[in-house]
Design a binder for these strands. Structure first.
Lengths: 167, 167
DNA sequence: CAAAATTTTCAGTAAGAATTGAAAGTTACA
DNA sequence: TGTAACTTTCAATTCTTACTGAAAATTTTG
């Protein structure tokens, strides 16, 4: 396989993966492109490479920066902004977990707490509170486990993985 | 809060959560509805409750059955099919991981292996192979860790969670 | 076996999400 | 301070995905 073909395939695959996980395809593709770029790219280069519009490129680059997956880089004597991806996969994973936990898991936890206070002592109500309680317990555990994972350093997590594999 | 309001809120929340995780909203809502239903529901009851068409209900119920999150239940003397959700949250989580691992993580692993074989010894090519190698290593570890999680029984996982919380 | 009940399929349509492109905004240099 | 280089915004549009509803298929029952 030629280098260019490999790069294209990677960009496609990463894009598809993203789209199955609630990340828009272009955002994942820009990320992929920057991951395999040997050096920082400008918005124009990204537009050119992925054949997307300026607006689209800009929006998705900003989103990646917000997620902490891409950094801005200013080049000596250049007025343009250049962009570079975080290449430490552990950090990438960590950032994604932090973002999604905050945006998706935590709001669900709050709703579960709220609805676990429904009135009534009928069987219906009791059963409802039961299952909501179960879900809440599970979600809290997941939340705390994820906190742990993201708060500890890379080695801790790698060690956990290694331990898991040894079992 | 009244029971009905709590139920509605739960269905909405679960639907939103699903839609951020690549599960279509209706599928997640049907799942939520069945989770909090005190007994098995027929397709008609689901249609009625969520105000969706027969076709839509059917498709999503089938998908939930495929995912192993919902079971068919036949009632004595009734011709209709009734449906009931798996309520053990651990099993639900496990099923979802198994499905998504197979459909999303494993294909990515295969692509990464394939593209790690690009020809050429230029710096460009070497750097590309390096980063792909990193990603592949990370993805394999995640894959194996998930295997471990899903293959062990509930207690093992719960214990791991508890251990995490103690740290 | 016929007909009634129920489930499945799928072409057409609707709803929602992403993208474009041009105009407005910003920055930085002479 | 003016203007050229560059970035951001957002209304209109396109693309994608989900949903409907009616027809076809299947299953059950007398």
């Amino acid at each position: 396989m030629q280098l260019q073909e490999g790069k294209d395939k990677f960009i496609q695959t990463w894009g598809t993966l993203g789209s199955h996980w609630g990340v828009n395809r272009t955002m994942a593709q820009v990320h992929a492109l920057l991951l395999i770029a040997p050096e920082a790219l400008s918005a124009d280069e990204i537009m050119e490479d992925l054949q997307i519009s300026r607006g689209n490129a800009n929006m998705n680059i900003r989103a990646l920066i917000d997620w902490g997956l891409v950094y801005k880089e200013l080049k000596q004597g250049e007025r343009k902004e250049f962009f570079i991806a975080e290449k430490d996969m552990w950090k990438v994973f960590r950032q994604i977990i932090i973002q999604r936990k905050k945006k998706e898991l935590e709001p669900v936890l709050r709703v579960l707490e709220e609805i676990s206070k429904v009135e009534g002592e009928t069987n219906q109500a009791k059963e409802f509170k039961n299952i909501i309680g179960d879900i809440h317990l599970f979600a809290s555990k997941a939340n705390q486990a994820l906190d742990n994972v993201t708060q500890s350093d890379s080695n801790w997590f790698v060690n956990t993985f290694i331990n898991m594999l040894k079992k």
